[in-house]
Design a protein around this nucleic acid. Structure first.
Lengths: 240, 240
DNA sequence: CGGATCTTTGAGCGGGGTCAAATTAGGTGG
DNA sequence: CCACCTAATTTGACCCCGCTCAAAGATCCG
């Protein structure tokens, strides 16, 4: 079996090198005709926004990788999602004056800020985009609920498999390799997102590797047997 | 201790007898000026809509109690929420042509149907309501994420306590008693929602009763010690 | 090189799941 | 109205998956 990572050149074959030509869902150019869209760099580890800070903009991820975290008053923390190029952050704060969660860059990121509430006025003049915003919010709800289903009905290893397939599919939509990628988050973040502990995630990954479904070395992942992974998470095999 | 339910007259003190005078978030009268709002009765156990059916309307709950269920292709099922008077159902399907989940009445319900997409056109003529819709969607996202936090970070008994406090708070907002109510759903539905098994929910309720935090008899619940329940779910006690 | 962080693995335990049975409520038709 | 049937709830006994605790690499950064 070839699960060695040696032949990988450090940068040339990096499966997630920057690719600005990937298509975007949102037509930013159209929006810019109606408001001031400012660009913002956020370093890995920095907060894009924090729980309690004033809500002044929607944040469109142009490049980079982030996580969103829900917090409780007594200090519990839950990763609620991972966001990448093309995702819109901050929509959960619409209707409020402050953010109710954290957004943290896991990678150096470039964010385009759509000032709020001006963005709502802009949408009023672009009825088509208004529907797009509602649709984007609805899709966020659907995504969250599919994860509720996953977490509520699948055991640890299958949650991890579902997580890998989700990341792979999203990277594929951006034009990256779905079979070979670098995780931008640590085991603890994956664990929190999947309602597990980091040791359990590690063990699940190790076991999936022993089954030859994937190969893992720290944050580098290769999907070796996607059909088996899909079967693992309950998607009936398309063949047969 | 008085945990007896004997003194309860069958209807007169029913903590959830119909109360149409409770205030609503959505101004239906305003909407009716722009579209045809049809009323619909749904019997307990019937589907309001099902996964895969065409998405033709948003559904406003005027009376009754419902659950929404997420389904997987391989037959797994997850209760994603319980909906009562004032809640808007179907928003998760905005942007799609079919529903992606089930909505089931747990009680005889009266639903006001806001035809879609006409409702979007109506919103275009009522800018204020357009923002309300986005805000309603955003609040749905926040609610889901708070449950992710609860399920991801609290053990079984505390999840059940959080569930009871949530139901109580929502009933209170509708003008019902927050201390004494009838659950409209079975143990299995609660369990699914909280990512537990029904026996675990039963045991948690029994234990909370033994602690004198609540009293339970089948679906009838009294909250005896709300501060202790709140402390249980991590809300720092407001009194010191 | 040295220290902090992240990942991996093992050993042991326990919370919650599984299986089973008893009890009770509710519905239905005689 | 009651007998019967079905479904919901409760409880016990047992077990296992995932958590806890601990320690040993591995990687990164100053």
């Amino acid at each position: 079996m070839d699960t060695s990572f040696a032949p990988l050149a450090p940068e040339a074959t990096n499966p997630q090198s920057f690719r600005p030509e990937a298509p975007l869902e949102l037509d930013i150019a159209e929006l810019q005709r109606h408001m001031v869209v400012t660009r913002r760099k956020v370093r890995a580890g920095q907060y894009l926004y924090r729980n309690g800070q004033p809500f002044r903009a929607l944040h469109f991820v142009h490049a980079g990788f982030l996580k969103t975290c829900e917090l409780s008053e007594d200090g519990r923390e839950q990763v609620t999602g991972f966001r990448m190029r093309g995702d819109l952050l901050g929509v959960e704060s619409i209707g409020l004056s402050v953010h109710t969660c954290d957004a943290v860059a896991l990678d150096d990121a470039e964010i385009w800020e759509l000032p709020y509430p001006p963005v709502l006025d802009a949408l009023r003049h672009i009825p088509e985009l208004q529907v797009r915003l509602a649709a984007a919010l609805a899709e966020e709800i659907r995504r969250d609920r599919v994860w509720m289903l996953t977490i509520g009905t699948l055991p640890a290893e299958q949650r991890v498999a579902a997580f890998l397939l989700d990341i792979a599919a999203r990277l594929a939509r951006l034009g990256f390799s779905a079979r070979h990628f670098i995780l931008r988050m640590g085991r603890a973040d994956i664990a929190s997102f999947l309602a597990l502990k980091h040791e359990t995630v590690t063990r699940a990954l190790s076991h999936l590797e022993r089954l030859q479904y994937i190969s893992v070395l720290r944050r580098e992942v290769k999907l070796l047997d996607v059909p088996k992974l899909r079967a693992c998470v309950g998607t009936p095999c398309t063949i047969q």
